[in-house]
């Protein structure tokens, strides 16, 4: 088995595909494979329109997963995603009341709220030493309680408001024939990749993820990096909330719930090392597409809810075991 693997990997290695790059490739291959399978089960699945719709849905997962990628790169995790996202969507409609002239302030307020939640997470983790799992878990509860309490369980007068038309139009619109949500995602992919690969911030992020203590002793401001990464995660969750409410028109309770599992799954499929220090957002983006394509294939096969859950879990496990094997061979 090991020999067989080595024989297969060596040419890839020579072609400049180290493990991290291979994983990005795997994630893309998985997405393509799923589209092929989908086309077989359900002809028309791989039509441009269908692919477009899938990638569009994937962009929401991808945005949340961008934030998740940032924190996972330093070995953290953000479990507060669901209610930061949900809170953001409700805050947008209640603060804008569906009016365009209030939209800019509402957008700023909403993104600011996401950033603030991330800031609190980051400060507690970096300065008070609260484990990331506990802090972001607590933050999820805090955001849930605040959102429910302040909106009276989404019964408040403003809660039934729609997203401001300008936001809804922007999400539904298109640029050069590409849906604008997708354009935004492409921009985010470019920016995040640039940030991680070519900036001092990215370099310090990877350094911190590899070994926070050694990075600290090398003069890296580990606390600041940690805080900034959690702020980014909060920001991206809020951004996804804005897009979702723009896409669907109205906010609802529990709309953030699927995004925790999906964002983590995308990060895993994308080949980011959960203990930090390795991985790339490109792979995660492919992972998001793979994930949504998987769901769509299962839907096309009329797979009931429970079956989807089970297959989700099994796919993640298989990938983890596969990557784990690769890890052991290095």
């Amino acid at each position: 088995m090991a020999k067989w693997n080595a024989a297969l990997l060596q040419p890839l290695e020579r072609a400049g595909l180290n493990r991290d790059r291979r994983r990005i490739l795997y994630a893309f291959l998985a997405a393509i494979l799923l589209f092929a399978v989908g086309e077989i089960v359900h002809p028309g699945f791989a039509s441009p329109g269908s692919i477009g719709a899938i990638v569009m849905v994937a962009s929401f997962v991808g945005l949340v997963a961008a934030g998740q990628t940032f924190v996972v790169l330093i070995g953290g995790i953000d479990l507060s995603v669901p209610w930061v996202l949900n809170g953001a969507s409700i805050l947008l409609v209640t603060s804008s009341l569906g009016q365009d002239d209030r939209a800019p302030w509402a957008l700023l307020l909403t993104l600011g709220m996401g950033a603030a939640a991330g800031l609190v997470n980051g400060v507690a983790i970096a300065f008070l030493g609260v484990p990331a799992v506990v802090m972001t878990l607590a933050m999820n509860g805090i955001m849930e309680g605040l959102t429910l309490g302040l909106s009276g369980g989404l019964t408040c007068g403003a809660c039934a408001s729609y997203a401001p038309p300008v936001v809804a139009d922007a999400v539904h619109g298109s640029l050069f024939g590409i849906p604008s949500a997708l354009v935004l995602w492409l921009v985010v992919i470019a920016l995040v990749s640039l940030l991680l690969s070519f900036t001092t911030f990215g370099r310090r992020t990877y350094a911190t993820g590899n070994n926070p203590h050694a990075s600290y002793l090398a003069g890296v401001n580990v606390r600041l990096i940690t805080i900034l990464l959690y702020v980014l995660s909060g920001l991206f969750a809020a951004l996804a909330g804005i897009l979702l409410v723009g896409f669907g028109g109205q906010a609802s309770l529990g709309m953030g719930d699927p995004y925790l599992f999906q964002s983590i799954a995308a990060v895993v499929i994308g080949g980011v090392y959960m203990l930090g220090g390795r991985g790339h957002y490109l792979g995660v983006a492919a992972g998001a597409v793979t994930l949504v394509a998987l769901v769509s294939v299962l839907l096309a096969m009329n797979m009931p809810d429970y079956g989807r859950n089970i297959i989700y879990g099994i796919v993640i496990l298989l990938l983890l075991l596969l990557y784990g094997r690769e890890e052991a061979e290095d």
Partner: peptide, 24 residues
């Protein structure tokens, strides 16, 4: 190995970690 270097990172990245502002 645990307090100094970032083992999976490149020689280059390890060398310049403390002088990133100077190369950016």
């Amino acid at each position: 190995k645990t307090e100094g270097l970032l083992l999976p990172l490149s020689v280059r990245a390890n060398l310049t970690l403390a002088v990133l502002p100077a190369v950016s």
